[in-house]
């Protein structure tokens, strides 16, 4: 029981990370019908930017200097920043990146086929991964945890350790969900965003500024995604391959929950996290194959409920 609880807690830590990236993917899918394969890499760049912002020159990584820290030392006021401020900086960077991508890459492709839009996101996936590797090298970097992460920082529940970092990540996710809900329900931009989601042409006809709203939507989605890269700190090291794996977990989460359902993204994230944490222990799947349980869950979801737990079944007319 103790072990079971422990595994659940570990799984739900990862689950929260997957949920936040899945939430970003779902937001963009809902509003534009586009699956953004570059979401993970956009988040990873933001994570590295946050790392640059919080590291004094020569201090980050395991003995490898981090490019950009000297530059930041010279140009960024009060550098190195405290970890929370740096994460906020990373999120802002992610938001700007998302807005720029929408404005300068996706919007000119409006009206083109889905295939060419997807091709562009795959291109961005390759490009951003290459850029990260090029700028910061293949080394694993330790990202300091924004929460108390000493050996004794845990709450004991039924003998299992619920670490403060885990609680912290849950709180952040909760804040994001509440904030996003408030934004969508109580602001004019949120109303415009929901209008575009439900009927884009109609929204444009009644004067909703579609382009501007979508730019804001992409920025918010990329910001939420960026959080996922910053929050893995303390448990997983940051390296150029980190986010491509988390992207697959997030895509699995979004598929399981339903690609157009934010609630589904969050539930799916926790399902994937739990599947990944419980399967090695109880099904005897070795940890290096931890990709398999989420994939199996995704296949199962596609077989049993093709449009996800909370997704809507699309209707098409000829």
């Amino acid at each position: 029981m103790e072990l079971f609880l422990q595994r659940c807690f570990d799984g739900m830590f990862n689950g929260a990370i997957y949920a936040s990236l899945a939430l970003a993917i779902v937001m963009i899918y809902r509003s534009t019908g586009l699956l953004n394969f570059a979401q993970g890499e956009m988040a990873m760049m933001s994570g590295y930017v946050a790392l640059v912002l919080l590291s004094a020159p020569g201090s980050a990584g395991f003995g490898f200097s981090l490019n950009g820290t000297e530059w930041a030392q010279e140009w960024v006021p009060f550098h190195p920043w405290p970890v929370w401020v740096a994460i906020l900086g990373g999120v802002v960077f992610g938001g700007l990146l998302g807005a720029a991508v929408e404005r300068f890459i996706m919007r000119p492709l409006e009206g083109k086929s889905t295939l060419s839009q997807v091709n562009v996101t795959i291109g961005m996936l390759i490009l951003l991964n290459g850029l990260t590797l090029w700028i910061w090298g293949p080394f694993a970097r330790s990202f300091p945890s924004p929460f108390p992460n000493e050996i004794n920082d845990f709450v004991s529940i039924g003998g299992a350790r619920l670490r403060h970092t885990t609680i912290g990540v849950w709180i952040v996710l909760l804040v994001v969900i509440v904030g996003l809900g408030f934004l969508l329900q109580n602001t004019k931009t949120g109303l415009a965003f929901r209008a575009i989601t439900s009927n884009r042409d109609g929204a444009a006809l009644v004067g909703v500024p579609v382009g501007r709203t979508l730019t804001i939507g992409w920025a918010i989605a990329a910001g939420i995604g960026a959080l996922s890269a910053a929050l893995v700190g303390g448990t997983i090291v940051l390296e150029p391959l980190t986010m491509i794996k988390i992207l697959i977990y997030a895509l699995a989460a979004a598929t399981i929950g339903g690609l157009d359902s934010p609630l589904g993204a969050i539930v799916g994230g926790f399902i994937v996290g739990l599947a990944q944490a419980l399967a090695p222990g109880y099904l005897g799947i070795p940890t290096e194959l931890s990709l398999l349980p989420p994939l199996a869950a995704m296949v199962l979801a596609l077989v049993l409920r093709p449009h996800g737990l909370f997704g809507t079944v699309p209707v098409s007319r000829v």
Partner: peptide, 13 residues
């Protein structure tokens, strides 16, 4: 990877 990724985006345009 940078060249390929950028190429993929460019070619679409």
């Amino acid at each position: 990877a940078v060249v390929f990724g950028a190429g993929l985006i460019l070619v679409t345009f």
